[in-house]
Computed example of a mutant assay.
Amino acid sequence: MKRRTFLQLAAGAALAGTGSLGFQPARAAGKDIVYLTPGLDLPFWRYLAKGVESAAKAKGYGFQALDSHNSPQTQLQNAQDSIAKGVAGIVISPTDSSTAPSVLALAAKAGIPVVIGDIGTNSGDYASFIISNNYDGAKGVGEALAAALKAKGWEGGSVGLITISQARKNGQARTKGFRDGLAAGGWTGKEAGLQQMQSYTTDETFKFTQDMLTANPDMRGLFIQTDQPALGALRAIKAARRSSDLLVAAFDGIPEFVDLLKSKQIVASGMQQPYLMGQKSGEALVAKLAGGPVEKEISVPILVVTSENIDKELPVVKETVFANEMK
């Protein structure tokens, strides 16, 4: 692979969907903050990017978001090019926790501070880690789904999981939390299987859901561990004419979820607050660059939003989850 320049990577990221976020070309070396993201095709990472950008620009830094397209190799290449350019600092949401140490090692050798915004790392040196309590959030979703199943008399039905990568620490926490929440809520059924997303697309989850429905005709519940792919699962359920006898729970949030929650097509979603996480990531990095104290780990609460509380939670959700995209 030929080594790409920083500006070429930035142009590629814009073509991949960053242009609508208003990211500006990098300015002078040493005055730019770079955000290395798993994939800007997912709204969650776009919202987090906006938060980092707001914090960086508030202190006079330039900003660049580089899309890794869910590839550890691409993320490493983006890191190498950013370091070669001499950026001031890096915020990274790793493609997975096991490959993050390679990026951290490169940055440490170059003396460039790094803040981790979500997902986490298995090892390595970093200034701060901004994380949601994925376990508690997913546990709340599991409890809400269990209650909804019980209200229908379906607590003995099977429940399927379509997860983010289980090589990610946050993915492991979501799976454990959800299972514990189901049990705490009195669910007594069996698991209808677990499928891990790789491309994080609606087409992928459509196929996973089709396969689960075919293999488990008694399936009464489904948990999808991120936002936009949940729409593919709902499409598959509708195509199978199972919308009236299967309950869906999700994680994270996009504007489409508001009407889906209100209509009970989704009964609950554990919404991280990506815009707020991005702001805190950017603020931690700016504080580190200024020589100030930085907390090693900063936890951001997860909002367990249900069909019952969506109207109450919506003002906060619009600001900290949807990055004010929803009018």
Score class of each variant (00 low, 15 high):
residue 39 G to I: 10
residue 39 G to N: 15
residue 39 G to E: 14
residue 40 L to C: 01
residue 40 L to P: 05
residue 42 L to A: 15
residue 44 F to V: 13
residue 44 F to Q: 09
residue 45 W to A: 05
residue 45 W to P: 07
residue 46 R to Y: 11
residue 47 Y to H: 14
residue 48 L to N: 14
residue 48 L to I: 10
residue 49 A to L: 05
residue 49 A to W: 07
residue 50 K to A: 00
residue 50 K to M: 13
residue 51 G to H: 03
residue 51 G to A: 07
residue 52 V to K: 08
residue 52 V to T: 12
residue 53 E to G: 07
residue 54 S to E: 15
residue 55 A to C: 00
residue 55 A to V: 08
residue 55 A to W: 05
residue 55 A to F: 01
residue 55 A to R: 03
residue 57 K to L: 10
residue 57 K to C: 03
residue 57 K to P: 03
residue 58 A to N: 12
residue 59 K to H: 12
residue 60 G to Q: 06
residue 62 G to L: 05
residue 64 Q to G: 10
residue 64 Q to H: 10
residue 64 Q to D: 12
residue 65 A to D: 09
residue 65 A to N: 02
residue 65 A to P: 06
residue 66 L to C: 05
residue 67 D to S: 01
residue 67 D to R: 07
residue 67 D to N: 14
residue 67 D to P: 04
residue 67 D to Y: 08
residue 68 S to I: 09
residue 68 S to L: 11
residue 69 H to Y: 11
residue 69 H to W: 09
residue 70 N to V: 00
residue 72 P to D: 13
residue 72 P to M: 13
residue 72 P to K: 12
residue 72 P to W: 12
residue 75 Q to F: 02
residue 76 L to Y: 11
residue 76 L to R: 12
residue 78 N to S: 12
residue 80 Q to D: 14
residue 80 Q to H: 10
residue 81 D to F: 01
residue 81 D to M: 14
residue 82 S to M: 02
residue 83 I to P: 10
residue 83 I to F: 11
residue 83 I to C: 12
residue 84 A to T: 14
residue 85 K to V: 13
residue 85 K to L: 15
residue 85 K to T: 13
residue 87 V to H: 06
residue 87 V to R: 02
residue 88 A to P: 02
residue 88 A to V: 03
residue 89 G to P: 00
residue 89 G to V: 05
residue 90 I to D: 01
residue 91 V to R: 04
residue 91 V to D: 02
residue 93 S to R: 04
residue 95 T to R: 09
residue 97 S to I: 06
residue 97 S to L: 05
residue 99 T to E: 08
residue 99 T to Q: 08
residue 99 T to R: 01
residue 101 P to K: 04
residue 102 S to A: 15
residue 102 S to E: 15
residue 102 S to W: 00
residue 104 L to D: 07
residue 105 A to V: 03
residue 105 A to C: 04
residue 105 A to I: 00
residue 106 L to F: 02
residue 107 A to I: 05
residue 108 A to N: 14
residue 110 A to E: 13
residue 110 A to Q: 13
residue 112 I to D: 10
residue 113 P to V: 01
residue 113 P to T: 03
residue 117 G to P: 10
residue 118 D to W: 04
residue 119 I to P: 05
residue 119 I to V: 15
residue 120 G to Q: 06
residue 120 G to H: 01
residue 121 T to G: 03
residue 121 T to D: 09
residue 122 N to Q: 09
residue 122 N to C: 00
residue 122 N to A: 06
residue 123 S to M: 05
residue 124 G to F: 11
residue 124 G to R: 10
residue 125 D to Y: 11
residue 125 D to T: 15
residue 127 A to W: 00
residue 127 A to N: 05
residue 127 A to F: 01
residue 127 A to I: 06
residue 128 S to G: 07
residue 128 S to K: 02
residue 128 S to M: 02
residue 129 F to Y: 14
residue 129 F to L: 09
residue 130 I to S: 03
residue 130 I to F: 03
residue 130 I to C: 01
residue 131 I to K: 10
residue 132 S to I: 02
residue 132 S to L: 02
residue 133 N to S: 13
residue 135 Y to E: 06
residue 135 Y to C: 03
residue 135 Y to R: 02
residue 136 D to Y: 13
residue 137 G to C: 10
residue 138 A to V: 07
residue 139 K to T: 09
residue 140 G to H: 03
residue 140 G to C: 06
residue 141 V to C: 07
residue 141 V to F: 09
residue 142 G to W: 06
residue 142 G to I: 08
residue 144 A to E: 11
residue 144 A to W: 08
